[in-house]
Design a protein around this nucleic acid. Structure first.
Lengths: 181, 181
DNA sequence: CCTTGCTATGCAACTCGTTGCATAGCAGGA
DNA sequence: TCCTGCTATGCAACGAGTTGCATAGCAAGG
């Protein structure tokens, strides 16, 4: 498992509280590694007791204190160690693919319902693609004057864009196939 | 969770034992939903006690008995019910993407090591793509005389092929980006 | 001959991830 | 005014997934 490491990367890019991390996981890094606030709070505590991060309580009026986390030298060493380990083979879980194969064991009404569901799913991913493209224009308008971190963030975003485009094309193929049955 | 449903689809396509299912999950359906033999055995037992599948002990000389599982009417009903539920948003976990962003916090030696790792990872996925393409030629040589189940299996396989091609292109982009830093 | 690996199933312990719930004050809209 | 929703953190329980190990006979290669 490596939620720890995703958190280290996110905190190195920008220190913040558990809550802020949870928000970020919904947007930025969470496109490639998702996590709920519960997981993040729990893991942050473990990381703090292991000395990978420091926290500082920040009083806010009328609200519970915020804990602002930042990465320690030890945490950074841990990240570097992990970076040099081989990448684990991914655990693929593509529910839609299972449902499409399952549609062979449903009737016409079921397949019609699946078509509607694929259309909905496609629309969701079209929205995601547009969000990525908007973010790309905003954050990386000019590719020539970017620092190392930004270049790497950009290439990861390009991966997300390529994935969404591939997915939309495939979903069109799926729809055509389902409609011909 | 839906390992149950992936198992139902696989058993409907072809009944078999827990061990055979585990093999299949490594090859066919496991490309889109992976699981270890442990999970499969445990879930099969639960499914049997819930009446979703039946099993028949088959004696084999010199070896432990095999339990051949097949789907009951109830199991099929459960599958159909699940098929009509909306697709859950995927839990994305792309370790390599996190490592690439993390490379901003490593030194040149670390980035060189990451390039080597990406090259290795790329070679793995090239092998996967070739396996898919070989399987496609073998199982779907002529797209005109396929039954519903085969057409659906084929479109899912085309999804796998599209994914691997997209990934290889992106990895080339990643390598170029890392080498320019 | 010995070791490795395959078929075939399973237990036990552990970690990870999910879900439901709780607190608590503030802001904004119906 | 009331309700919803946001910031901000956290506990508890449960379900899912992983890892290590065990049994057991057979086949194949060095």
């Amino acid at each position: 498992m490596a939620l720890e490491h995703a958190i280290l990367v996110s905190l190195l890019e920008q220190p913040g509280s558990g809550y802020e991390l949870a928000r970020r996981f919904e947007r930025s890094i969470g496109r490639f590694w998702n996590a709920t606030h519960q997981q993040i709070y729990r893991v942050l505590k473990r990381m703090e007791s292991d000395g990978w991060v420091n926290s500082e309580a920040i009083g806010q009026d009328g609200r519970p204190d915020k804990r602002a986390y930042s990465v320690t030298g030890d945490g950074r060493d841990q990240l570097v160690e992990w970076l040099r380990e081989p990448v684990q083979p991914e655990a693929v879980r593509h529910e839609l693919a299972v449902k499409i194969r399952g549609a062979a064991f449903d009737d016409d009404a079921g397949r019609t319902a699946l078509i509607a569901e694929v259309v909905r799913y496609r629309a969701e991913h079209e929205t995601t693609l547009n969000r990525y493209l908007t973010g790309e224009k905003r954050d990386f308008p000019d590719d020539t004057d970017l620092d190392t971190g930004q270049r790497l963030q950009h290439v990861v975003l390009r991966g997300g864009i390529a994935y969404e485009r591939m997915l939309l094309d495939w979903l069109d193929d799926v729809l055509e196939t389902l409609r011909k049955i």
